[in-house]
Design a binder for these strands. Structure first.
Length: 570
RNA sequence: UACCCUAUGGUGUAAUUGGCAACACAUCUGAUUUUGGUUCAGACAUUCUAGGUUCAAGUCCUAGUAGGGUAGCCA
């Protein structure tokens, strides 16, 4: 422990931390006095499940608030009752908590419906909004196109008095759904289409998950979002790039209302290779049964990653690693996989499991004898201790760890060769037994009693170490070997006549029965372990007392596999 | 083809705001290793193009090029 202030690194010594463009914008606004604090929010619409892309936004908003000693709210942007449900509200809250964040205040945009309504009347009185009788199709026609200006609505010049009366009529249910809208009076010729008299209210008779049937008119996103930010005292309203063109409207509403004016800042949303993050795609996969639901371990939803076994830390670290910018980039999925490997390497206890067993008999082992060997739980963590595992003359090893004839660089077991059994002995392979079809049914070896792990003074060295389980002690478990859902780098890119479904990986899930060391039969749902030399696994909720189910979270790095694929094994 | 945004190794993000292009991941090479894991060392760039300003440009100016976004009464 340090008892001297001199041990504290000076400013000059500490490495310069680069700050992303949003941090720099905040620095500037704080310095100039535009704002005197940092108040952010995460504003999901409760119409679906959160995915890895949301995690980036959540991490950003909460991290900024924390960095500057500010506040971060959770606000559900629930202005469209036809799409939103309480079920999603709860799922979203669960996911955010699982990620490890705690919001300062919980709000709903629907809490502000009364206030928003009053502000709408204010804009009407100011002559900044009007009731329009055009239907949806007519409105579209009048709006013009990307290259042509729009035309004024024939109802654009109604008096404030008439507008007020009509607007109250809208509220009171005097008109049919879609018959009228309230629109902001801005500029039908604006090159920014969002400024061509955007709709503020639509008539919609739908049961709202919170306000029930109190309203038959609902505010649109643009008319709701900025003012909700304003009411909550948000200073930095951080959103994704597609809202860049909405910022002038965001600003216009705040200015016309003369209310606290947050600064909207846009960043590029997350795009990951081999992944399809998007409500349409994900919905289709769930609806068509291409996956097992929103929390299928192959899904890029947070609930999917949770069930797959990803740790919240690994997702947070990943989000911090990839940075924040305005460039539309694609992050290599390997970064995410490495992130969970990195975390689990430090914390996951090691266990032995054989997924594709072949019998191995030790011919010189005393018949029926069983010994227990000590095995280190985690070489990365001395505090993880060790465990006892039973060893006998009949074992299972991984079928791919044996070759009758092997290339030069195959360091595992081969006929006439030797290998070390992890937490066991060095064994020498004498012979193999085959069935009529030529398949290997048994491998015959002798063990070298002088080479017991931890007590080996023999001086013998072998190139390889393999894992094993004792046949009579092993427990049977189900193992779900998950792999990437899509084979394509960008599954959204398709040839003529194809869809993303054509890019599905037929081998994204393989289920096998495996033998594991006895202790794992008692593993609890949610326990994460490393199966030595194979990967990281988590006990799934489908486990029963009789049979545990393990999901593969991610494999270990497989240098040998790469060498083999490239033919570099000789 | 209207408006807005973006462009730095294979990928992503930096560059003290005009001063030797840095970090991470990936890839390759080697070392260590009782997990082919982990760890360690090394290799890997005409800053989209063309002009210009300047002692000095990734950064400033001009003109291009390429990519993304926007025409819901979705968010």
């Amino acid at each position: 422990m340090s008892d001297s202030v001199h041990d504290k690194p000076s400013e000059a010594d500490s490495p310069k931390e680069s700050r992303h463009f949003i941090q720099q914008a905040i620095d500037a606004d704080l310095a100039s006095g535009r704002f005197d604090g940092v108040f952010t929010r995460f504003p999901p619409e409760p119409n679906g499940y959160l995915h890895i892309g949301h995690a980036k936004s959540i991490c950003l908003n909460f991290a900024l608030a924390e960095e500057f000693g500010g506040t971060c709210n959770l606000r559900f942007d629930d202005t469209n009752p036809t799409k939103e449900e309480t079920e999603y509200v709860n799922a979203i809250k669960d996911d955010i908590e699982w990620l490890g964040f705690k919001w300062d205040n919980l709000h709903f945009s629907s809490d502000y419906f009364d206030k928003l309504y009053a502000w709408a009347e204010k804009l009407i009185e100011q002559g900044d909004a009007y009731v329009c009788d055009l239907n949806a199709e007519e409105t579209r026609e009048y709006r013009g196109s990307l290259t042509e200006p729009g035309r004024d609505s024939p109802h654009r010049d109604r008096s404030p008095k008439e507008n007020l009366e009509l607007f109250r009529g809208m509220r009171d249910g005097k008109f049919a759904d879609g018959e009228k809208t309230l629109r902001a009076k801005i500029d039908m010729a604006s090159p920014n289409i969002n400024l061509r008299d955007p709709v503020m209210y639509r008539i919609l008779r739908a049961e709202h998950h919170r306000t029930g049937d109190k309203w038959c008119i609902y505010p649109t996103y643009d008319w709701t979002h900025g003012q909700s930010d304003s009411i909550e005292g948000i200073t930095f309203s951080i959103c994704t790039l597609e809202f860049e063109n909405h910022r002038p409207l965001y600003d216009w509403y705040c200015q016309k209302l003369g209310i606290h004016h947050p600064r909207q800042i846009e960043f590029a949303k997350l795009k990951l290779s081999t992944l399809l993050i998007g409500k349409r795609h994900m919905l289709r996969m769930v609806k068509e049964g291409l996956v097992d639901g929103w929390d299928d371990p192959r899904m890029p939803t947070l609930s999917g990653y949770r069930r797959r076994g990803y740790t919240p830390e690994s997702i947070r670290n990943f989000c911090a690693d990839i940075g924040v910018a305005k460039f539309n980039s694609t992050i290599d999925i390997i970064r995410l996989e490495n992130s969970v490997r990195d975390h689990l390497n430090k914390v996951a206890p090691r266990r032995m499991a054989v997924l594709d067993p072949v019998k191995l008999t030790i011919t010189n082992w005393p018949s029926g004898e069983v010994v227990t060997n000590e095995a280190v739980n985690n070489p990365e963590d001395p505090n993880a201790g060790s465990r006892e595992i039973p060893f006998s003359g009949e074992l299972y090893i991984e079928r791919e760890d044996f070759r009758e004839e092997a290339p030069r660089k195959f360091f595992r077991l081969k006929k006439g060769g030797a290998v070390r059994l992890r937490a066991g002995y060095i064994i020498d392979c004498q012979d193999v037994v085959k069935d009529d079809d030529g398949n290997i049914t048994e491998i015959l070896c002798t063990y070298d009693p002088e080479t017991k792990s931890g007590e080996d003074n023999s001086g013998r060295k072998v190139k390889g170490t393999i894992h094993w389980v004792s046949a009579q002690h092993a427990a049977e478990v189900e193992v779900r070997l998950y792999d990437r859902l899509f084979t394509a780098e960008d599954p959204s890119k398709c040839e003529e006549g194809q869809t993303f479904v054509d890019h599905l990986n037929p081998d994204s899930l393989k289920t096998v029965t495996a033998f594991v060391e006895p202790e794992l039969a008692k593993a609890k749902v949610g326990d994460r372990v490393q199966f030595e030399r194979l990967g990281y696994f988590i006990v799934d909720q489908d486990s029963t007392d009789d049979k545990r189910v393990f999901n593969r979270i991610v494999s270990l790095r497989d240098t040998w596999g790469k060498m083999e694929a490239k033919g570099k094994t000789t």
